[in-house]
């Protein structure tokens, strides 16, 4: 599985590199169960340390070019990140409920509700997206070299505010432009050591796909959007490069649909107990469908790690850890 046998249409065969995943659902299940017990006994505090154990396992079972990935996050970091987010939520929530409770008029109800939604959607989410991405990369290494993210949260706000706003008022039809801009910002500032990732796309290319996904979602009982999701996956990766090599995704709508359907059924019929197996299936499914093609000289890549909290961004540093489990779908 390490080397793909697929060949590009016409031309010479190039080496296609791929991630391999060796994790077993059974081992992960054992980790999960012990984590849950310890989390209950410690009134939830162990949850963060348990999360680190799961990530350690997932990273250490992921291989690229014969070497495994490593995770470097700690339970303490995750715990404090969560505490910070809670402080923010309590302040915003308290403000919102306070206004609704004391000013009993209709306007104050509206203002109170707005504060909550605007606070979460326009402040917490963008900070969380960047913070989580920065944290995830800076805590991941391969062959001893760390990944890093060097974008500024301030700049992210400039993309996020108008993008989110336009997506909301166009009922989602604007979202391809927003997604492409977000991805550009997040990917182009991502590094492995000294080597940079690059993404270049245009929202226009996905506009009609997204359009039909929204329009046909209900008539096709939610099935059609899977095909668009696969198209988008292929598009995103086909426009993504790392150093001198080019990514390619082979994801197909039908595969994705069956995969998600089986995941859903597994979770429902085991009351969520199958979650570790779903995690393993997901890693395999994704890694099998992403190829990195072309010449790539890994040996010249040098360590150039930036600490997640050393980006000199003032106030947003405060929230620069991962405190929400936001899956960006970037990997």
């Amino acid at each position: 599985m390490a080397e793909s046998t697929e060949q590009p249409l016409g031309g010479e065969p190039t080496t296609a590199r791929q991630l391999s995943f060796y994790g077993q659902g059974g081992s992960l299940f054992g980790i999960h169960i012990v984590n849950i017990l310890l989390a209950i006994i410690t009134l939830g505090i162990y949850y963060f340390w348990g999360k680190v154990r799961v990530r350690n396992y997932m990273h250490s079972q992921t291989e690229f070019e014969g070497d495994r990935f490593a995770y470097h996050g700690t339970g303490k970091e995750l715990f404090f990140g969560w505490l910070k987010a809670m402080v923010f939520l309590i302040v915003i929530g308290g403000l919102s409920f306070g206004i609704q409770l004391f000013g009993k008029s209709f306007t104050s109800q509206i203002i109170g509700t707005l504060i909550l939604y605007v606070g979460i959607l326009f402040l917490l989410f963008p900070v969380a997206i960047v913070g989580a991405w920065r944290f995830k990369l800076s805590r991941t290494s391969w062959r001893g070299i760390r990944f890093s993210f060097r974008g500024h949260t301030r700049e992210f706000f400039r993309i996020y505010f108008p993008g989110m706003f336009l997506t909301l008022i166009t009922l989602g039809f604007y979202s391809p432009y927003f997604e492409v801009r977000l991805r550009k910002f997040l990917v182009n500032q991502s590094y492995f050591g000294s080597a940079q990732f690059h993404f270049d796309g245009d929202g226009r290319d996905l506009f009609w796909g997204n359009f039909w996904a929204i329009v046909l979602a209900i008539p096709t009982l939610g099935i059609y959007p899977f095909w668009y999701a696969a198209t988008r996956h292929r598009y995103f990766w086909s426009r993504t490069t790392f150093s001198t090599a080019q990514f390619r995704s082979t994801m197909l709508g039908g595969d994705l649909f069956v995969f998600q359907l089986v995941n859903g059924l597994l979770l429902i019929f085991t009351l969520g107990l199958a979650q570790p197996w779903v995690l393993v299936r997901s890693a395999r499914f994704t890694f099998e469908r992403i190829l990195l093609e072309g010449d790539l000289d890994l040996d010249v890549i040098e360590q150039d790690a930036r600490d997640a909290s050393a980006t000199g961004e003032g106030i947003t540093d405060f929230l620069d850890t991962e405190f929400l489990d936001i899956d960006l779908g970037l990997l």
Binding site: G66, D67, W142, R143, G144, I145, F192, G193, L298, D299, V300, I301, E302, Q303
Partner: peptide, 12 residues
């Protein structure tokens, strides 16, 4: 064993 020197992505 594989040794990573922490400087380059070259495994030893």
């Amino acid at each position: 064993a594989h040794f990573y020197d922490g400087q380059t992505a070259q495994p030893h």
